[in-house]
Design a protein around this nucleic acid. Sequence first.
DNA 1: CCGATTGTATTACTGTGTTAATACAATTTC
DNA 2: GAAATTGTATTAACACAGTAATACAATCGG
Lengths: 132, 132
Amino acid sequence: MQIHITEADGTPFYQQVVNQIKFLVASGRLDEGEQLPPVRRLAEQLLVNPNTIARAYRELEAEGVVASKRGAGVFVSDSGSPLSRKEKSRILNERIDALLTECSQLGVGVDSLLKLIEQRSKKFDSPRGGKS
Amino acid sequence: MQIHITEADGTPFYQQVVNQIKFLVASGRLDEGEQLPPVRRLAEQLLVNPNTIARAYRELEAEGVVASKRGAGVFVSDSGSPLSRKEKSRILNERIDALLTECSQLGVGVDSLLKLIEQRSKKFDSPRGGKS
DNA sequence: CCGATTGTATTACTGTGTTAATACAATTTC
DNA sequence: GAAATTGTATTAACACAGTAATACAATCGG
């Protein structure tokens, strides 16, 4: 499990773990049904308290990314991939709302915003067609 | 000064004041050079501590929306509303870059993002009353 | 069954953000 | 210059999030 947490990030440890596991699942590096490391082992690896990992796993379970069984372990949920799209939207909508609010305050219309984004996106490397 | 704060919102009082004054300025209901209510008066009106209003004013000053002078008052900054288009773009580009970065990590294409924003923007058409 | 392994619950410590109580400093007004 | 009005600084109270220490409960493996 290639997970790496950092203090400087400002985002809490458990959140970093959540995000990175989500990414591992979404990118296929963690297959459906696969077992994640036990809370104690990952905790030891990352030098944090087992409860911190447990919280991350709990969060992931609440979002349907994984399923956990006492005594057995935590496993990637079978519907990890399809759910992730709604999850993506949810995450993005938070950012989008903030952006739209800012636009409203600046008096920038949605059309102008969309053009700005299109412009800006060209400076990012190929968006790799992401549909799905 | 028609400002209204609520406890249930979850967002801190000073932040609500900041947002609403920003909106009043952006919408022209507060003209350039106009003086805002003294911290104590607005505090009394909203039934909060004067320091809470002071913090909101300080925040607004840091963002260039207002300028404050000890003993005189707090006044809407001359360049509060009419930020240059390039300036607006600069501010928005920061948010946009963060958003695009997030999309890249989530594997969401720009097209999907644009559609999400269009969807989301329709819920911003009714700024009054809309709360769930 | 029994011990080992696993996730879960309870509790407490710590840091940070929000707000308030109070005192201070600058400007206005007379 | 003095009093009133204004913004500012300091400090504390309080709540909450994040994390850790510890004990508990369920499952697995012999």
